[in-house]
Structures are given as structure tokens and as C-alpha cells.
Write a protein that binds this DNA or RNA. Structure first.
Lengths: 257, 257
DNA sequence: CGATCGTTTGAGTTTGATCAAATGTGGTGG
DNA sequence: CCACCACATTTGATCAAACTCAAACGATCG
């Protein structure tokens, strides 16, 4: 990881540009080479998790801020009787638990959906960021506010939209998010979910997910096979799901580049 | 408002203690007299909104951070066809739009449910806080993370719980939040909502809200009349709604006082 | 004292859940 | 390479929670 700094000579603007968090924060602001290097150097102890493993558990007192480097993870909460609600998906560049930095204790869990590489930034590093790099600090804060905006939109999804609309909306959201990190090829992106997990995301039974998917397929809007989702008609899908990308807050800052 | 500093001589620990934001942040940390004074002095331009008025509208570029001083407000989002989802309730001490400070543009609206007093803290004041008062800054950040935790729990509510459970859970949440700001008297608190608004919160039709309420009433759990909610049996209500207060993150810090 | 808004009740419908079984599919060990 | 196992997907049939539509009833207010 530290070897990336070797790229400095070749092209100063590329320091840490392959680091997923640096890439994400660059959507919000232009990070200085020093800031980028600080993030890269602070990312230590990369660990692997297998599909299904918990990365952070409810009740944990964190020992640092975790960051998805590679793979696909999800936040979730369980009710006592076993019902599960998925609260968010985490893709490369997303932070797991900046919450715990201030809230002290996790009120939900995070698990890996596929094999996932997770980096840890120590609590002291984050503290140091907030002292030395106000611009970087704002970028991190921005990342948490973005998470919140997505969370709010999920409330709308669950509260107001029908099964079709929910599913269409989710697929649109992930299309935009995956494209923003360069993970859409053609019209496809990797979506390593079972239909049951989709149901736990959308508040639907697995049976109903299956039928809804079949309908979306038969209408030529998407296909979903082998953990890959392909969007055949994005505008139609957006319209069906009442999707408007503004809540993802790509835009203003990014355009300025 | 500035006259509150006159209390300094009498009891130094009480500077700004009646200021709702100071009171809220004190749940997280012990603010110094200087920090408390800074918050009180920064709170300018208090304005009134009537029930139904928008306080902040979707698309707004903010001109400062707004703060509920008195009253009851709510975040909401509309779909193009008129469906409305309420995303959060705001009680005295809650911040409206710290989001916009970094996200630049509101992706949802905020309206007053009753007559509501709103204070504004200028953007430059907040910036000054982040430079001079790291402890206060952390407290503000904590407040936004708490909002997010509540938002996540609402996802669980909408995605996994039945109509009864949803309603029970919401009433429990507000009971705890209102009690934390000293607004529970006996077992009652002011909840100035129509049944339609309750429905737009819980993802239910107004008719179904009415019937669910009747059931909760007839089971002796709550009554809801004239904008006042009374909880007759909190433990039973918590059990019915699978409510666990840990996500509200009262606790650790507060206990230390 | 209408007018307006909110609540309540009734009847019929729909969406999505549940239960159960059949059909893929991918991986593992013999 | 096949047999088998564990899981995931698919289909069918039935059921229930919650919605819609419509109308009546109650408050509150100029």
C-alpha cells in the first residue's frame, strides 16, 4: 500500500488515487497530495472476511474505523424473533463505523456479502485528521451525511413505494453508486445478493421478490442472474421507481473537476 | 437570549442551560461555559412558523443552520404523484439542516407541525465552532449521528414490523425522546399529529391507523386524544413494538454526570 | 350555523405473506 | 465423473394484513 507513494514522481495528482476512500472523498473535494498520503498511510491492517462473516457486531466498542476496500458488505439489524432488516449496502470506499467514533457503541451489525477486504484506520489517526486536515475532516463528515441521505431515501422506499417501485428504485440507486466507483461495465454491475437478502432489504418475502423480479425481467427492464444485475432500460426503470438521483449528491462538486 | 449570561454569577454551570441545543449536547459531553456561551450567542434571528408552513424546502441552498427552539416539526419527502413520507420528527434542540452545511442542497423538506420557533446559527458561526471548539464540534457531529441512528431504526420499523408494532415502537421512541427534554408529564406527552400524518410516518393508510389506534387503546396500552399521547403501560408497549432504547444512545455519557 | 377538517365505520378489493413442494445449481468427496 | 448435499429459485394454492372507496359523524371556527 505504501508503495503507491512511488507514483509521486510520475504524476503528483495520482498519489493514493487507487485508494478507494481517497477516490470516494474526491467526489466531494480536491484533496491535497498530503491529505491523500495521510489517508493511504493511515490505512493499516487489512483483513479479509468471508461471505456471511460479521465485520462489526452490535454492541461492539470499536477499536478503529473500518473501511471497505474490496467486496460488498451490508448493515443489518435483527429483531428478537429473527426478522432481519438490511439497512445499507457498503461498496469499496464506504466507511463502516465512523458512528462508533462518537456514539461509542454499535447499534447494528455489519456483515460481508461476498469475500471482502476491510482496512482499519485507527481512532488516533482519525483524531489526527480532525486536528490537522480540516478539508479532509469535512470530506469525512460529508461521507456520513451522504450515508444518511441514502438512509432517508430507503425510508421513502419502504413507506410509500410498491414492491415493483421499491425494487426498481434500489436497482437504480446501486447503478449510480456502482458507476461512481467505476464498477459498471456496459449496463451491468455485480450484485451478490440472494433473493432472500433482497427481500430483507425491501421488506418483502422471498417469494414475492421472486415474482416481482420475474415481472421486471419480462418487461425487459432488468435481468438478474448469477449475482449480476443488468439494466436494460435505465430511464424506464427510474420512472417506474420514482427515482431521482439528487439525493446521492453527485453533482456540484464533481462537476467542478 | 443574551440576557441568560446574566446567570453566570449566580451559578456558573447554568450558562445557557435553558438553551435547547446546549441542553441536548449536554447529553453527550460536558460543555465548558465558554462553549455554552458561544452557542447561545450564535443563535440569532429567531423566527416563528405556523402549523403547516415549510421551514426549509427541498432544493434550498441554506443560509445557515436552523434549530428548533420550541414546537414540533418534521422532515418529509413527496413523490411526484403526491404520496408523502415523513422521515423524522424534530423536537426542541434538534438541528434541521446541518446536512446542507456540507451537502449544499436540501434533498428533502422540513415543515412545522405546530407553531414552531426556529433559531438560525450562521454558517460562519458553525465554521468558527469547528475551528475553535473541537469538543463542541464533536458534540454537533454526535447529534447528526444520533439522527442517523434513529433514521436506521425507522427503516427497521417500516421494513419488518406490523402496523401494531410500528405504532407501538414510534410511541416508545417519542416517549424517550420527549422525556429526555423534560416534555413528559406523568405518562403523557404532546404529539400534535393527525392520523393521516401518523399514516405518512408509518407507511399506513389513515383508515388503518385509525383501526390500529383503536386496538392499542382497547388493550389499555395508550390513549391519543387532542394531540396528547398517554402511555398507560410502557413495558407492554415496548415489548409489543420490539423496542430497545439502545439506539437512542442515551447512556454511557449521560450516566457519567 | 354552515363550512371545513379530522375521525370513525362499513364493505369490498388488493397486495403481498405464508405454507408446501418441485426444480435448479454449485460444490465436495468418493 | 458422478452422486449427493446444501442452498437458492421457482411455482402453486391459500390466507391475511392493509388499502380503497364511500359515507356518516364530530369537532372547531369564523
Amino acid at each position: 500500500m505504501a508503495s503507491q507513494t512511488g507514483a509521486l514522481q510520475a504524476d503528483p495528482s495520482s498519489v493514493g488515487s487507487r485508494h478507494p476512500l481517497v477516490r470516494k472523498l474526491s467526489n466531494f473535494t480536491v484533496l491535497s497530495a498530503e491529505e491523500r498520503e495521510a489517508v493511504v498511510n493511515a490505512t493499516a491492517r487489512i483483513s479479509d472476511f468471508n461471505a456471511g462473516d460479521d465485520i462489526v457486531e452490535r454492541g461492539d466498542l470499536t477499536g478503529g474505523v473500518r473501511l471497505v476496500i474490496e467486496g460488498f458488505a451490508y448493515r443489518y439489524k435483527l429483531l428478537e424473533d429473527g426478522r432481519r432488516q438490511i439497512l445499507a449496502y457498503l461498496v469499496p470506499g464506504d466507511l463502516c463505523d465512523l458512528h462508533v467514533f462518537l456514539l461509542k457503541r454499535m447499534d447494528h451489525s455489519i456483515a460481508a456479502m461476498t469475500r471482502t477486504k476491510v482496512g482499519i484506520i485507527s481512532q488516533s489517526s482519525v483524531l489526527a485528521f480532525t486536528e490537522k486536515y480540516p478539508n479532509l475532516t469535512r470530506a469525512l463528515w460529508w461521507a456520513t451525511l451522504l450515508d444518511e441521505a441514502i438512509t432517508r431515501e430507503w425510508i421513502v422506499n419502504l413507506g410509500q413505494r410498491t414492491a415493483y417501485e421499491r425494487m426498481a428504485h434500489l436497482f437504480c440507486e446501486l447503478f449510480y453508486r456502482m458507476r461512481a466507483i467505476g464498477q459498471v461495465e456496459g449496463n451491468s454491475y455485480s450484485l451478490p445478493l440472494t433473493q432472500t437478502a433482497l427481500g430483507d432489504t425491501l421488506g418483502l418475502s422471498n417469494v414475492h421478490v421472486n415474482r416481482t423480479l420475474q415481472d421486471l425481467r419480462s418487461q425487459g427492464l432488468v435481468s438478474f442472474k448469477g449475482g449480476v444485475l443488468t439494466v436494460h432500460d435505465l430511464p424506464a426503470l427510474e420512472q417506474l421507481g420514482f427515482f431521482s438521483a439528487d439525493y446521492l449528491h453527485f453533482g456540484a462538486e464533481t462537476q467542478r473537476k
